[in-house]
Design a protein around this nucleic acid. Structure first.
Length: 423
RNA sequence: GGAGAGAUGCCUGAGUGGCCGAAAGGAACGGUUUGCUAAACCGUCGUACGCCUUUAAAGUGUACCGAGGGUUCGAAUCCCUCUCUCUCCGCCA
């Protein structure tokens, strides 16, 4: 969430920038500033009153120890009266703070000046296109047909044991998936990311910390009996590892990577977009997360984009990088690059990674801070990206590298997969 | 799941109603000393939110001793609820 003092100091600019994301609720901003004023006034009132009570209480203690009981009794009566005022102030203050928080979380992150204007995905800016689209032979198949032909994935079986959107990977399909995970993790750790295995369920505080709650509750699977949420991405547990931490500058940058399954309800999805591996309720993903000094985060996002780009290049997949426009980027992001790979048989681009800088939006909520060289405590910037989401990569590998009687895998995978092709 | 013990600052650990934002030791940081390392000595060593202030610093107030409530003029300390950790037993990959 945004920092109220920042909104106060830059009200006009904040509003201008938020408009890029389609946020124009000036009234909300002003309401927040008013509530914050009230909060300050009440805090002052409470502190003053409580200060008097504390001082008087100390006197009573001294009177008692001197044996002046009568005088102490008189003072007690006075202080009790003063104390009575405290309760209502405290209640009002708590109410104000709660109300304030509820409003502040409704403001999206401020888009960076790099964010192009626009409302729809069509207005995203292609900043890079790489690799080349294959010329498929006649009778080339979409990946769900290939998965059947080579017995790699059984979608019906998944439906039987769980439901649609939960495929079962079989034999070489399972092995290829494992090879990709291994390759991606190795690739990330070679760049200095620390590998972590984290829980696949998180508590409410964690889901709140990265912004899944309160807004996106409907997108998550919930275990109500234990108050847990199945993670929609490794970003949630990984970033929350540092919740409420105060880091030293020497701890930075924090670079983490982890493989996890991701669970998404995808309520409202339907149609051909969900065909095959295009959109699943459970899928595997390797994620990278960084926590860095504010002045470095835009340098770091470029570095992360380059990191993911080289990974895609190594897989020999045609890809493009989009800088998302204000209307298409997520609520919590300040700048996002999406990576898409070309699914040759479906003849469409599939998103396989999303690299974002959240600046202090997440860390303010999670209180992830560090002490800078001057000894000043300030919020870190958080960034994350996928490197990479598995199913769509798998789909593109199958489709793009198919021949009439095999799938010829890119070279980097041969060793991990244990073969050069799927027959 | 049953029984018991516990939760204090970066760590260890004292504190059972006012003199406690909190002893002591360690770590860390700064300095002095030093041929180097080490040691010794001196100093610093929480966070948040207010107020004051031209920003900052300084100053000052309030809150925080697992979380939430309660008793009291006054709570780390007493009471209630919850969460978590540890030990033993049971169960188990």
């Amino acid at each position: 969430m945004l920092q109220v003092p920042h909104i106060r100091a830059n009200r006009t600019e904040v509003l201008e920038r938020l408009a890029v994301k389609g946020f124009t609720d000036t009234a909300l901003i002003d309401q927040i500033l008013e509530l914050d004023d009230r909060r300050k006034k009440l805090t002052f009132q409470y502190d003053e009153t409580k200060g008097s009570v504390n001082a008087a209480s100390k006197e009573i203690g001294q009177l008692m120890s001197k044996g002046q009981k009568d005088e102490a009794e008189v003072r007690k009566q006075e202080v009790a009266k003063l104390s009575e005022k405290l309760g209502p102030i405290q209640d009002e203050l708590a109410g104000t703070e709660k109300e304030l928080l509820a409003l502040v979380v409704r403001i999206p992150n401020i888009p960076s000046p790099l964010v192009p204007p626009g409302k729809t995905p069509e207005e995203n800016v292609v900043v890079m296109e790489g690799g080349s689209k294959p010329n498929l032979h006649d009778g080339a198949l979409p990946h769900w047909e290939l998965a059947k032909k080579y017995n790699l994935i059984d979608f019906e079986l998944g439906t039987k044991i769980t439901g649609s959107g939960f495929p079962v990977y079989i034999n070489k399909g399972a092995r290829l998936q494992r090879a990709l995970i291994q390759y991606f993790l190795d690739y990330n750790t070679a760049s200095g990311y620390q590998e972590l295995q984290v829980p696949h369920m998180v508590n409410e505080a964690s889901a709140y910390g990265t912004g899944q709650l309160p807004d996106k509750e409907a997108q998550m699977y919930v275990v109500p009996e234990d108050g847990f949420y199945l993670i929609p991405t490794a970003e949630v547990p990984l970033t929350n590892l540092y919740r409420d931490e105060l880091l030293k500058e020497s701890d930075l940058p924090v670079k983490m990577t982890g493989y996890t399954p991701c669970f998404r309800r995808e309520a409202g999805s339907y149609g051909k977009d969900v065909r095959g591996l295009n959109r699943l309720h459970q899928f595997d993903k390797v994620e990278v997360v960084q926590l860095v000094q504010p002045e470095k985060s835009y340098e770091v996002i470029d570095e992360m984009v380059g990191h993911v780009e080289r990974l895609l290049q190594s897989l020999k997949l045609p890809y493009r990088i989009l800088r998302l426009c204000g209307g298409d980027m997520s609520f919590t992001s300040a700048l996002t690059y999406d990576f898409e790979v070309y699914s040759a048989a479906q003849q469409k681009w599939l998103e396989v990674s999303s690299v974002s800088n959240f600046e202090t939006y997440q860390t303010n909520r999670m209180k992830i801070r560090y002490k800078d060289s001057k000894g000043k405590t300030q919020l870190l910037h958080s960034l994350n990206g996928s490197s990479l989401a598995l199913p769509r990569i798998l789909a593109c590998l199958l489709e793009n590298f198919q021949t009439s009687d095999a799938i010829a895998l890119p070279e980097v995978l041969h060793q991990y997969f244990g073969a050069a092709s799927i027959q």
